[in-house]
Design a protein around this nucleic acid. Structure first.
Lengths: 228, 228
DNA sequence: GTTGCGCCTTGACTTAAGTCAAACTTCAGT
DNA sequence: ACTGAAGTTTGACTTAAGTCAAGGCGCAAC
């Protein structure tokens, strides 16, 4: 598929004229990353940002002892690394492919020229950064104000909402990664899933989790209830 | 002082022509808040954002049990509430005056008109949101990947850097608020300050803290050292 | 199939940090 | 100066969650 048509399809770029999409197409570079490959590491010079075309990416930090905190897990057509570009510094975190991944890479310099001439693009970017900020705010809230059962409950409800009508959640990341996303470790996650099952809040079967008591989970997430 | 001259002095608005400052002046409203007064609460409709002219503001969330996590403590000439405006939703946190505070309030609607016509303004806003994102990333890192002594060490070093040459740090917030900023409680903060003093990393005397061993604190903050 | 390597779970133990309660300090307001 | 409220410190205790170690499960490669 033609790179300009791809660009025109990306939500972030809706509102751009065909001419502007063509300009973007001229500066964008298509790149391929295999599972486990690193896009950038914390401290790297922010020379551009990425938009995912296919595959999956995690953005994370590591503690010196090796504990990992995942900030986002992203899929097409989401961008990443965009904030570092506007702050004009280096990347504050690491990004790695979780699977075979195809991206478009936009070098900073050319992109900044374009954005300053294109109000609809800057408004989209502002909206995007604001959503990221909101998401991070929620992460801080979860880490600081909720215990692990509350975080897990909130996360399960989120997955459930995304799922629409389906009654069971099919986990699309490993429980290791899930623990890292929730700011905990696999052992703790495993134990808490079990406790939830014991209280008939969920039924957990390998990669499949069914929510039995939505209200119960909501109470847990809000801190109005405790697990035994 | 004239509202337009005030606006021209705000870093966020540098790069705007006098005419554009005048337009901003026409939509801005000057407001006064007394200590403890609330600007907005979590969930409130985001009808605009604020820029601090004098005083001090905290942005925070509360857990149902009443624990507080402070996200930012802001002073003139910093803006707050800006992200909610671009996300076009409601405020994800609360904001309250920590002292007698004077602000400019910019209603969303008028402001969005203006920004879409003013590239330099949108670039400033993008840079601002990016810096906020970076700051929140650090907060998540601290909460998830560091223990309280590490967080405190990092915070003291930050205050020390801000201070420039002065050898002693004069705390400008209560230790209660400081605990809340570090994601802990006053009792824990008090104990850890004492342990740091015991190890000759700092000398703490009421509101004044002197850093005795910068490298030691840095090691703590990086997780390369533990407190006894 | 069998081997081996991640992923996941479980148990026993440790530990950082929170809770509760009491006392002391600081400071604003009367 | 007195009073009371808020901020701070300290001690004894509790607890959520992490560490360490072992074993089981599942899947891919040979």
């Amino acid at each position: 598929m033609d790179i300009v048509s791809i660009i025109a399809d990306i939500p972030l770029f809706h509102g751009l004229s065909p001419g502007q999409c063509a300009k973007l197409g001229a500066i964008a570079v298509r790149k391929y990353y295999s599972k486990g490959q690193s896009f950038f590491s914390e401290g790297d010079d922010a020379d551009g940002f990425y938009i995912i075309l296919s595959g999956r990416v995690k953005v994370f930090k590591l503690s010196p002892e090796g504990k990992e905190q995942i900030f986002h897990i992203l899929e097409a057509p989401e961008p990443f690394g965009e904030a570092a570009v506007f702050a004009g510094k280096n990347f504050p975190a690491c990004a790695q492919a979780l699977a075979q991944t195809q991206v478009l890479f936009f070098p900073v310099r050319n992109f900044l020229d374009l954005i300053s001439k294109e109000p609809s693009l800057s408004l989209s970017m502002l909206a995007l950064l604001s959503m990221r900020l909101r998401k991070l705010t929620t992460l801080v809230e979860n880490l600081s104000l909720k215990e692990v059962p509350g975080r897990l409950a909130a996360y399960l409800l989120l997955l459930n909402d995304r799922n629409g009508s389906k009654s069971a959640i099919e986990l699309d990341i490993s429980k290791n990664q899930m623990a890292s996303l929730l700011g905990t470790i696999p052992e703790t996650l495993s134990r808490i899933l079990k406790r939830m099952a014991d209280e008939n809040l969920i039924r957990a079967d390998a990669r499949t989790i069914s929510i039995l008591d939505k209200q119960g989970l909501a109470d847990l997430a809000e801190g109005n209830r405790k697990l035994n």
